[in-house]
């Protein structure tokens, strides 16, 4: 019993590491724009499909695939920013969100046109047996996922809190008008934040498809939903909250799947979000989200 709890927690933390990266990307974009980017997951999917396509046609190796995934994600993210968010800055939040949904549709259809099968194999991160630690098993790709996520978080922290660009980003998050008056080129910061968030998403997307060893067109919706859920659970707009939200979501899913099965796993995660929102717990509703 206790062993199961610990094993589930281990699995939950590795899954949660990817969710945390998705949530960080959402939070960065939400922080500077006050908008949810529904096309965030589909843009990541675009990168993953670009990598899968390259692998199928040219048989590229793991590292090159990672680079292609991230580059594709950033490219798609820039397209989304230009078409959905740059024109609506200071304008309608709903219009921006619906526009990002429209591009989601584009990415999804593009994926199914270029690669019409429902499922494609993706080269696995690691094929060997899992690590045995007494009664527990640790998947090597899970460990790689966790380590990469921690490294990505550390890098993000360094960028945000130790670089001039990071200072500008935090200024735009706290006081966009004052940041603009202080001479910060806000539109240019926004473009780069989008690129940064898409790169984070690309890392997470690559880790997810490489550890699952397969890719389907559901990836876009899946990563948007997981990222939104983790971001909301941790408190909208807070970067440490996004990491905690991602880990919490991973843990909740792992435990509820073990005890109640896969359908209840999703039900419980959504129920928790609904109840926390309805109860207006303090950490979730402090940021304005018009």
């Amino acid at each position: 019993m206790l062993a199961d709890l610990i094993q589930n927690s281990l699995d939950g933390v590795t899954a949660g590491a990817a969710y945390a990266l998705f949530a960080l990307g959402f939070t960065l974009i939400f922080g500077v724009l006050r908008r949810a980017n529904l096309a965030y997951g589909p843009a990541i999917m675009f990168g993953c499909y670009a990598a899968t396509w390259t692998h199928l046609n040219f048989g590229a190796g793991l590292l090159l695939l990672a680079v292609i995934t991230i580059a594709g994600g950033v490219l798609a993210g820039a397209y989304v920013e230009r078409l959905c968010f740059a024109p609506h800055r200071g304008g309608s939040a709903i219009a921006a969100m619906v526009a990002s949904f429209a591009l989601w549709m584009q990415f999804e259809e593009l994926a199914t046109i270029v690669m019409p099968r429902h499922l494609y194999a993706f080269p696995a991160l690691y094929d060997g047996p899992p690590l045995e630690l007494g009664p527990f098993t640790l998947r090597i790709d899970g460990l790689v996922m966790l380590a990469t996520a921690i490294a990505a978080c550390a890098l993000l922290w360094w960028i945000l809190y130790r670089s001039r660009f990071g200072l500008a980003v935090r200024a735009v998050i706290e006081q966009p008008a004052a940041a603009s008056l202080a001479g910060i080129n806000v539109p240019w910061v926004l473009v780069r934040v989008f690129a940064l968030a898409s790169a984070l998403g690309g890392v997470a997307g690559y880790l997810v498809v490489a550890s699952h060893g397969q890719i389907t067109p559901m990836l876009g919706m899946w990563s948007t939903l997981k990222g939104l859920l983790a971001m909301m659970l941790g408190g909208l707009g807070s970067l440490p909250g996004a990491v905690l939200g991602g880990l919490a979501l991973g843990l909740i899913e792992a435990h509820s799947q073990w005890f109640f099965g896969p359908q209840w796993r999703d039900l419980i995660a959504y129920l928790l979000l609904f109840v926390l929102l309805a109860a207006r717990v303090p950490w979730m509703t402090t940021r304005s989200a018009s």
Binding site: A93, L228, L267, Y270, L271, A278, A289
Partner: peptide, 23 residues
């Protein structure tokens, strides 16, 4: 319980409710 929430909070609460209905 949700109509007092604004903007994205309400949108997410309705999304969570709808996904619960679907499941």
């Amino acid at each position: 319980p949700t109509l007092r929430l604004r903007g994205l909070y309400f949108a997410m609460a309705t999304l969570a409710a709808a996904e619960m209905f679907r499941i």
